[in-house]
Design a protein around this nucleic acid. Structure first.
Lengths: 331, 331
DNA sequence: CTGAAAGCGCTTACAG
DNA sequence: CTGAAAGCGCTTACAG
């Protein structure tokens, strides 16, 4: 039914070897023979079976991507960056999630052992690190995106979290906000430590200490609950730096419920710049992470690795950008 | 390096045929032999090479998915539904986009000819319909998601667009809104016609005609521009039914700019229920499409087809839900 | 119940 | 420059 290399060879009056040679543009083929074969290939619209090529060659021009969830607000941008890059290199992208615990991890590792793809892109390897390390040691090329834990043995790409935190701090300082609340993400994440470090260092540079730091979990509900609790406790602050936009949205809600005006009484800055940020009330100032570029960069690194080139030894850091909106306007 | 079926066979003292038999749980294997083989498989942690299995079997337990863009607000939900279903069936998912015109389409069709996957899920086949039709006639199982054009030759799953439009209309009618503006999507889309039909029919049932219908293009910018223009022309309306949330957000912006109060002067209803809808000012009433369920259902249909079962001849229609928020509260 | 052999559709030394 | 043959790692009639 489908046309094979044997059909092409027969129609062109050459051996399969020769067809394979023109397919893979290895030299040593007579120009006129090559032309004839190519003509037949076009006429029969022959395309080599990827499975057969993969089997014979030992790799299949496919990369895998493992993500914790596909519905996170910024995941689409990362994915788009990855897909664009991978497709442009004529590779396929096999998508996996690991949101159903051990079962999905088992399923996934078996796909790896089945050599279904040549290299792997991973977003936020929470809970899968042991597995990844094992696979990596077994020779599977892996690149991490937004590595929250700082795992030096993997090549990775991240946003400039330290500088992003510092930018948020400088913006608030310029507006005269001297007693900020920092609502972090889970402390075990590398990005959280970095954002906090950048922020506190910038305040320290102005001779100010950041006293109010609360650990959150990156959810809107938690952002809302934390601020409500702090207000109930009578804590005072004139700004909030939330470590992601979702939490910042919860913060805006809690402040509104308490009758506190944003930005007059309290300024609010988030992190990420997800699409919702433009539409909150007031619109959310935030530190933008270049998610699409991060996806593109990670994919390029992996493809380079598959092509035999070395990956950078230290994480590739992409710049963040302070996006100024109504919740924390410029002074 | 990687362990093959031959290694297992040798270690277990049986033929490759027998190993293959226990792998595929075809009967006719002595219980004790099977147990021994299984023990060896576990010990060597053998996993069959997916490429080799695919080649030998002619199919590779992988489905393809073709989407126009990964950054649309509701795409993540669809994808998550698809991935969950596909993974649970132990299939892989190969992701493709067609946002770079003819080049990507060519690349994609060649992947198809390469038999890289067994079946295909397609979201909104704009511009790819001819190709899809050809592939489908050549025997590739295809299922359409949110088929905007009504293509009876493909199995498909859509939201209840007619009923969704009617629900929006009934909600506005109950609030006494008698002269609505309908801001549609592109007319060539089947869903647009359906939403409009449902809406107008419900008004007609109350003896009211819908006079103000404007074609849009589903973008925020267009929603904003259309309303601004209509206001400048002095058109009057007491409600807006936008055919998607993005356009509805533009509508909210234009009304705010014009000093028109929502919902007091004009009520606004969107369609989709994307994440932003909860956070606009005022929050957006909308007709929810069950995107995740649509993804799950389409994937299930495709898997059933691959398993040899028939697909439903007519589109599978999933219910929508009227989500009431501040922009069009309940009376 | 079990195995030898052919075949899936390619690629790649090896000869010529 | 070209081809016959072996091999990639499986599955599946066919025999026994």
């Amino acid at each position: 039914m489908a046309v094979t290399i044997a059909d092409v060879a027969q129609a062109a009056g050459v051996s399969k070897t020769t067809v394979s040679r023109v397919l893979n543009t290895r030299g040593e083929v007579d120009a006129s023979t090559a032309a004839r074969v190519r003509e037949v290939i076009d006429r029969m619209s022959y395309v080599p079976s990827s499975g057969a090529v993969g089997l014979a060659r030992g790799s299949n021009r496919t990369v895998g991507m493992l993500v914790p969830s596909l519905t996170w607000p910024w995941m689409g941008e990362v994915l788009q960056g990855v897909v664009d890059t991978v497709e442009a290199a004529d590779f396929g992208l096999l998508l996996f999630t690991c949101n159903r615990g051990t079962e999905s991890v088992a399923r996934f590792t078996s796909q790896v052992s089945a050599r279904a793809f040549d290299g792997l892109l991973v977003v936020e390897p929470e809970n899968t690190l042991d597995m990844l390390t094992a696979l990596h040691r077994d020779g599977l090329p892996v690149v991490l995106i937004d590595d929250r834990g700082h795992h030096p043995e993997f090549p990775s790409v991240t946003a400039a979290n330290v500088e992003g935190g510092a930018a948020a701090a400088r913006h608030l300082l310029a507006d005269g906000r001297r007693s900020p609340l920092v609502l972090t993400g889970p402390r075990r994440f590398g990005c959280v430590g970095d954002r906090l470090t950048g922020f506190c260092t910038a305040y320290a540079d102005h001779g100010l200490a950041v006293d109010l730091v609360v650990e959150g979990d990156f959810t809107e509900a938690d952002g809302r609950a934390s601020v409500r609790r702090l207000l109930a406790e009578g804590r005072e602050f004139d700004a909030v730096f939330a470590h992601n936009d979702l939490a910042a949205i919860g913060v805006l809600g809690a402040l509104r419920d308490a009758g506190i005006r944003v930005p007059d009484d309290v300024a609010v800055i988030g992190f990420d710049d997800i699409p919702v940020a433009r539409h909150t009330e007031p619109s959310l100032s935030t530190v933008r992470q270049p998610m699409r570029e991060m996806g593109e960069t990670a994919a390029r690194m992996l493809l380079a690795r598959l092509a035999g080139r070395d990956s950078p030894a230290s994480p590739v850091v992409l710049p963040t950008e302070m996006i100024v909106r109504a919740s924390a306007p410029a002074r």
